Every structure is written in structure tokens, then in C-alpha cells.
Simulated assay, not measured.
Amino acid sequence: MRLSAPMVVLAVSALVAACEPPSGAAVIGYAFPRDGQYAALVAAAALPSDTTIGAIRIVGDWDSGGIESAVEIARARRLVALPGVMGVVGHAGSRSTLITAPIYVDAGIPLVVPTATSSRLWELGEWVFPMAPTDSIEAAFLGEAAVDGLKASRIALYFVNTAYGTGIRRELQRWLTSRDLMLVDEVPYVIGADLQTLVEASLQRSRPDLAVLVGRRIEVAQMAALIFEHDPSIRLLAADGAYDQLAELMLAAGPAADSLYLTTFWVADTTIVVQRDFIRRYRLETGREPSPFEAMRYDAVMVLAQAIREVGPDRGAVRDWLRSLGADRPPYNGVTGDITFRRGARHNLMLVRLQEGVPVTVPEAGVW
């Protein structure tokens, strides 16, 4: 049965609005706004109905919507106050995670961070567990793809002026400096900016042969279309933030879509059993194709659930179990690959292009 978006609340937890989980349940908090709830829906359907310690419930908090700082802080405070909460998955981006992580650290609640990439997340202490490759790893990936793979010599960078965008900018500059190279232009922007004016001015003054685009799908698609219209010979290389809802990306980018090289954490592979099962469940529950962001969020929920099943409803024991993955315990076999929480351990970045709407891995890029 396909569930519509309004029913996600009921599928994840019958008592989300009140933030009151069933009595005696071990709870996993889910710190994403409403449009990020699909992974929680699928994970809830995949969890066993009972375990030796009782039920595990996923409780979301999206009443306020949005990702503004005040909203994220309020969301974190409500989640740490949940009775029985053993861990939280979130938040949506680097900035929102950095500003809310101290709340979880002070409360002694494990925070599994599926998609935020800031290197600073690794400095927040023993209760914070980043999953995604860091800014420095992704910047090196982008640099190698641009310089070694695409043979670019004049690289312009267009980046969203957030912790995510500025982090990649800083690390890409560092990587290029190590190769005695430098950017020919840097263009920061904020959400809602006049991208046409910014991009056109940059192209006129810098004449790049490759543009690195760092931001959300909406802005990256718009910039790609503008650059392609100006000069179709300019190669277009996008960071991971753009790889979301590919049909909408293609529609917005227009003819530029075929020229985009896209960075991603994950490309669906139905020949792998754990991925095939996830993709089937995801399609069944949502009527959509899973994005890499949803796959990472799903893995974050499921690794927390596995920790709770193995060590029981004890936050400290859950923290220690997560910390032991890849050391005293084998990595967790997730949809997106082996999961450990050792800094630098997850390097599964891929470069893809779209061929008739289907993502195809660029062979020479390999898997970092």
C-alpha cells in the first residue's frame, strides 16, 4: 500500500505531535523536517514489531517545518526530552547539526549524522557519529575529478554561503594549492539570490573551462542551465548536495543536464541484496525512487536500531557499540556500504552522469 505524505506521521509514530512514545518503548528520534521523512517511514516498516527488549519506535519532530536555527534548536530540545530516547538521527545539514549537537552531547544521547559533511562534526565529542565523507574528502574528490579526470585548468567555484558550501570551498582551495593551482573565480551566494546576475558576471571576468557547483539541487540546476547557455563547452561538476530527485534536476537544468558530472554517496544497485530489499520497500511505501540522502538516513536509523537490539536501552552502551564498529566489531552492513564511525573510514564517493535520466558511474572516476 502506498502511503501519502500526510500518513507518514502515523506510520512513523502514532504520537509524533505530542512527542509521547508508547510506554516502555526504546525510541529513536528523527530530526528532519516534513519533506525528509520518507526514510523514517521505510525504516519503521522494516523494524521488527518486537524484540527481546520490547518495541523500538521512531519518533519524528517536524511540527514547525523549515531548517532555521531556532527551529532546529527547538526540535533538538523536544527530541532529547522524549521518554526512552536512545539516540537521534539528524540534522539535515552541517550548520543545523553543528548548532544542535551540543544539546545532544549535554544530554548524553548518541547523535548519528547521516549526510552533513563538515569536518568540525568530528570535533564535537564521543556522542556524535558522522556518516558522510567530510568536506576535505569531498573537496579532494572534486579536485581530482576536475584536474586529473576532466583535465581542467581554469576552475571557477560557485558555492552556497553556508557551513556546507564554505567548508568545501576552504578544503578545495587547500587541495588546489597542494597542486600549485588556484581558482580563477569564487562566487558565494545565498538562497534566493539573483543567480543569473552573479553567474553571468563571473563568466565574463573569469572565462573558466570548468565550474564546480556547490549547493542544493534547485540552485545547482539553475546555475548549470545559465552556464551551459553561455558556453556549452564549460564542464559542470556538482558536489553531493545536487544529487536529489533526479527527474526534477533534469527538468530544471534542461539541456545542461547531460553535461553535468554529479558527486554522490550512493547509486542504487539492485544486484546487491540489501540494496534491492531497501529499494523495493522504499518504492512500496512511498511510490518514489530513493535518493542517496534517504538511503543514508535509512542506514542511520537502522544502525541505531541494531545497537539498541544488541545492547539494550542504555545510551552509554549504544554509544560504545557505535564506536566499536570497524574496531572490536565488524562494520555494519548498510544499504550505502559498510558503516563505521572512524574518521576517514567512509570514502564511498562516486562520480556519475545522466544518460537518458539514468545515473551511470563515470568509469575513470572509480570509487574513492
Rank of each mutant, 00 (worst) to 15 (best):
S4W: 09
A5P: 03
A5V: 03
A5E: 10
P6D: 11
L15W: 05
G36N: 01
G36T: 09
Q37L: 07
Y38K: 13
A44F: 05
G54W: 01
S64G: 11
E68Q: 15
L79F: 07
V88C: 01
V105H: 02
G108P: 09
T115G: 02
T117G: 10
V128M: 09
F129N: 10
M131Q: 06
M131K: 06
A132C: 09
P133I: 08
A139K: 12
F141I: 08
L142F: 10
G143T: 01
E144M: 12
R154M: 12
R154T: 05
L157T: 11
Y158V: 14
F159L: 13
N161P: 02
A163F: 01
Y164A: 09
T166M: 12
E171Q: 15
R174G: 05
R174C: 04
W175S: 13
L176M: 10
R179I: 04
R179K: 10
M182N: 12
L183F: 04
D194V: 00
Q204Y: 10
Q204L: 07
S206Q: 04
D209Y: 07
S233C: 04
D240P: 03
D240Q: 14
D244S: 15
Q245T: 12
E248D: 14
G254D: 14
P255C: 08
A256V: 03
F265Q: 05
A268S: 15
A268W: 06
V273G: 04
R276H: 11
Y282A: 10
L284A: 15
E285L: 11
G287Q: 05
P292N: 08
R297M: 09
E310F: 14
G312Y: 14
D314T: 09
R323F: 15
R323G: 06
S324G: 00
D328C: 06
N333M: 12
G334H: 01
V335R: 12
F341E: 06
R343D: 06
H347E: 14
L351P: 03
L354I: 01
Q355G: 08
